[in-house]
Nucleic acid binder design. Sequence first.
DNA 1: TAATTATATAACTGATTTATTATATAACCG
DNA 2: CGGTTATATAATAAATCAGTTATATAATTA
Lengths: 120, 120
Amino acid sequence: METTKKHSLVEQALLFKMMNDENRLKILLYLYEEELCVCNLIDLLNMSQPAVSQHLKKLRQASIIQIRSQGQWKFYRLNEEYTHLELLNKILAELPSMKHEVDGLNSNGRRVFCTTIPTK
Amino acid sequence: METTKKHSLVEQALLFKMMNDENRLKILLYLYEEELCVCNLIDLLNMSQPAVSQHLKKLRQASIIQIRSQGQWKFYRLNEEYTHLELLNKILAELPSMKHEVDGLNSNGRRVFCTTIPTK
DNA sequence: TAATTATATAACTGATTTATTATATAACCG
DNA sequence: CGGTTATATAATAAATCAGTTATATAATTA
């Protein structure tokens, strides 16, 4: 029976569906570097908050990313339990690195307000 | 300047766009096994001739596959000169093999009329 | 508690995509 | 040449998708 194989292909096709959109692909590349706050993804992608939010929702529903709350912020990261994480990692490793862009958040202070533990 | 990097991501994103459709993904998996005639792709995918033809056109326009004419038949194969062939191969190698399906064309005679050099 | 900030969701719109139907092209065969 | 086969293309219609605007939720702070 080929049920398993076919099911696997359908699942993997969903991954490609998620990578189909260039902005979602960028999100994955950013998160491949490190966990990031929504506000920083908005900044990096230079797009509207609801647009980013909806892309994140799709990636979440596909179990590709995970969310973590910290105060009023939401941090997203790649889901270490994603069924096809190995495939995803192999692909992302082949694509242009976003390290410089992500590091840029620190060097020009754009990230501070968001990753700092709430002053209290 | 990051023109090169960004351009590369756009190009690679086009590959994911092509793999976005499950039927096109299957076409790539079939051709990863071997060069195939359009009629056999129609058979393998179990979809209409124009639908297959249009998927092939998209893949061709993206330079991912190549065409070869033999008599009234058209044979398609992965383009060995595709810019991101290495990436493509790495990805296809991770997906379920279609060897059995493609081999099935031979074992039940579905392929003969098409791959045989025209009787003459 | 009211105002503010961060994020999510809903409704909608325009663009894109896929498959169908119909037609065209081109090779082959009698 | 006329009919047939294999494939491509064009026009269209239905479905999907991404982004906008507006609104909701939830934490934070004054």
